[in-house]
């Protein structure tokens, strides 16, 4: 049952609903159910926020280390260096998001042209 399994216009949309919506919305609904039972200053939320933060951080780490598409041709060292340089600027400049991103992109583009 792949995306091209049934040759009808509606099948890919059904595929996206089943593999994409039916697998994400229930997690959100579960969050509403559980969150409705907790006060917003509850200590347990420190743990919940920590788990959620670590999960998204893992997504970041994977995006940098194992990218798909045209960036897959660059070295992991270049991608990590660009991200670290950008984050350092963000941090030193007092949480300035835009300069951080500009520096990360600049390091990456220079490395890309050097064939790193």
């Amino acid at each position: 049952m792949t995306l091209g399994w049934i040759d009808e216009w509606w099948w890919p949309y059904a595929f996206i609903l089943l593999a994409g919506f039916a697998t994400t919305y229930p997690w959100r609904a579960l969050g509403v159910y559980l969150g409705g039972r907790i006060r917003d200053d509850a200590e347990i939320l420190v743990l919940v926020r920590a788990v959620a933060t670590a999960l998204v951080a893992a997504v970041i780490g994977n995006l940098v280390c194992f990218p798909s598409g045209p960036a897959a041709g660059t070295t992991a060292a270049l991608r990590v260096a660009a991200a670290v340089a950008g984050f350092a600027v963000y941090f030193i400049r007092g949480r300035a998001v835009l300069p951080g991103i500009v520096v990360a992109e600049a390091v990456f583009v220079v490395g890309f042209y050097l064939g790193l």
């Binding site: 959100r28 579960l30 969050g31 969150g35 907790i38 509850a42 926020r49 959620a52 999960l55 998204v56």
Partner: peptide, 14 residues
């Protein structure tokens, strides 16, 4: 990959 949504929602709903 979407399990992470649950703790995010739990943190925001209150």
């Amino acid at each position: 990959s979407s399990v992470r949504l649950t703790p995010m929602v739990v943190a925001l709903v209150p």
